[in-house]
């Protein structure tokens, strides 16, 4: 069971690297935001799996929850900034 969770964590890190291509190449700034948002939400799961591996899940659950809240609020704030007129130029 332990090695299976390690295998899932490694495949998850590979899955996290894929959106980096979109962050680098994205034509508009929103594609980059999308890639960063995707990486953020995937990192929450990676933190949880690592918490399981390190046998101290209680601490890592709080870290993952804080990170999920932060990534959610940051995407809201950036979306709010880009819908204002000042961001147009």
């Amino acid at each position: 069971m332990e090695s299976f969770i390690i295998f899932i964590s490694i495949s998850l890190t590979i899955i996290i690297i894929i959106p980096f291509y979109r962050v680098l190449k994205g034509p508009t700034v929103f594609d980059r935001l999308l890639g960063a948002g995707a990486i953020g939400t995937k990192t929450v799961v990676l933190i949880l799996l690592l918490g399981l591996l390190f046998k101290r899940l209680e601490m890592f659950i709080d870290i993952a929850l804080a990170y999920a809240i932060l990534s959610f609020i940051s995407s809201l704030i950036v979306a709010k900034y880009f819908s204002t007129e000042k961001a147009k130029e």
Partner: peptide, 8 residues
């Protein structure tokens, strides 16, 4: 979050 981004 995705809806806010798409709307913006």
């Amino acid at each position: 979050g995705s809806h806010a981004l798409a709307r913006a």
